[in-house]
């Protein structure tokens, strides 16, 4: 088997126009890249949007994608960032089927990861956790010994450290 493909962080700053997301998504899909997560939100003003994309693929293919994305008329900037260059965060909501007997154990894990309880019923609990994607992965792994009903994650958002542009 091939060795696992590396994951890349891309940040794209784009004019807020209809079709911009579709054009960028096509740039990935045409070259066989699978987007792992995609976050779109407003920029400093509503005229611009910030897209944060994580995707797996070979470096040469990614270089092509960055160049092709940069070339799109609506795109102002498209950059790849290594994990070291950025602050990366993600938010997860995890809904567990848990009764009062085992709730304490869940809360102990939640406490360790600084997760908050945002919903509680006789039979379920919803935890909210924020942090790096790896931290959230670790928490979810520990919670797997309970019955997880649902997980919703925002996908990774990144910001370049210091005065550098994202």
């Amino acid at each position: 088997m091939n060795k696992p493909l590396p994951t890349h962080n891309l940040s794209i700053y784009v004019a807020n126009r209809p079709g911009a997301l579709a054009r960028i998504a096509q740039t990935f899909s045409r070259r066989g890249f699978n987007i792992e997560s995609l976050v779109v939100s407003a920029g400093v003003t509503g005229d611009f949007s910030r897209m944060t994309i994580t995707a797996k693929g070979d470096a040469a293919g990614l270089e092509q994608i960055i160049m092709q994305c940069s070339k799109l008329v609506d795109v102002l900037a498209c950059r790849e960032h290594t994990d070291e260059e950025v602050v990366a965060r993600e938010l997860a909501l995890v809904k567990l089927a848990v009764d009062s007997a085992r709730r304490g154990e869940v809360l102990q894990i939640a406490d360790h990861f600084h997760a908050k309880t945002v919903d509680l019923s006789e039979t379920s609990i919803v935890l909210e956790a924020t942090g790096s994607s790896e931290k959230l992965d670790a928490m979810v792994d520990l919670l797997r010994k309970f019955r997880i009903i649902e997980i919703v994650r925002t996908g990774k958002v990144i910001m370049a450290r210091g005065e550098r542009e994202t």
Binding site: G19, R23, R30
Partner: peptide, 16 residues
């Protein structure tokens, strides 16, 4: 047509 032609145009518009 806007989406259909997206990969084969330099740019495109749907006028609103």
């Amino acid at each position: 047509v806007f989406n259909l032609t997206m990969p084969i145009v330099k740019h495109s518009y749907l006028v609103r």
